[in-house]
């Protein structure tokens, strides 16, 4: 019976009633690495850090794979690990130092990175304007507090439902809404200030 349940669960996805085998885990990385990296990129705004934390997320998941009980989907479970890693990292004093260094370096570079420059191949003005506007929103969202940024990224980047976000970020749905409202309010304010 248990084998049948396991087989059924494996047929649907990777969920198993108890723990994840090493073979299951092999499949997790290629299946979820892009999403985990995207979320961490949006939360940390640092390419190297996002990559390091993505790796760390899978290593931590591997260590805890026996404890996975299938109460949440594998994706939610992984995202929860990623979100916790980002929060822990944010809290650490070491991060504060590197954050300051990065801000200082950006200031030295004039606040514009290579990625911020327009694509050389783009010739349509409208596309450029849309891209510029999208980048403005992205940059404005980067200034949100960590938890608001996490919730905002999961809602509007990953298009997750409020319940899924609540499960991932381990918050009440009401708290998720409150974070989103505050984030949207702050964004509107920042974007309003930038508008001519």
């Amino acid at each position: 019976m248990e084998k049948a349940i396991t087989r059924m669960a494996e047929g649907i996805g990777l969920e198993r009633p108890r723990g994840l085998s090493a073979e299951d885990f092999e499949r997790l990385v290629p299946e979820h690495q892009r999403r985990i990296h995207r979320v961490l990129m949006s939360v940390t705004r640092d390419t190297d850090l996002a990559e390091t934390l993505t790796q760390e997320c899978f290593i931590r998941a591997y260590r805890c794979r026996e404890r996975y009980r299938g109460e949440a989907s594998v994706e939610t479970w992984l995202l929860r690990i990623a979100v916790n890693l980002a929060i822990d990292h944010r809290k650490s004093a070491r991060h504060t130092f590197w954050e300051r260094m990065r801000v200082w370096r950006r200031g030295q570079e004039g606040g514009v990175s290579a990625r911020d420059e327009a694509d050389p191949g783009t010739s349509v003005e409208e596309t450029l304007v849309t891209r510029e506007s999208a980048r403005e929103v992205w940059e404005a969202a980067g200034g949100l507090p960590t938890r608001q940024r996490i919730v905002f990224s999961l809602r509007f980047g990953e298009e997750m439902s409020l319940e899924e976000i609540a499960e991932t970020a381990q918050m009440e749905v009401g708290t998720v809404k409150a974070h989103l409202y505050r984030a949207i309010g702050a964004l509107r304010k920042r974007l309003g200030e930038r508008r001519p």
């Binding site: 990385v29 290629p30 690495q33 892009r34 990296h37 995207r38 990129m41 949006s42 990559e51 993505t54 790796q55 849309t130 891209r131 506007s133 999208a134 980048r135 403005e136 929103v137 992205w138 969202a141 990224s153 509007f156 980047g157 298009e159 964004l187 974007l191």
Partner: peptide, 25 residues
């Protein structure tokens, strides 16, 4: 429209070549 812009930029920022993902794996 602004949130759609965020969503597009979000996806763009997460784009990486296949080599990157292979290296990560």
């Amino acid at each position: 429209s602004e949130l759609k812009g965020f969503s597009e930029e979000y996806a763009r920022q997460g784009e990486r070549p296949e080599v990157f993902w292979a290296k990560q794996r």
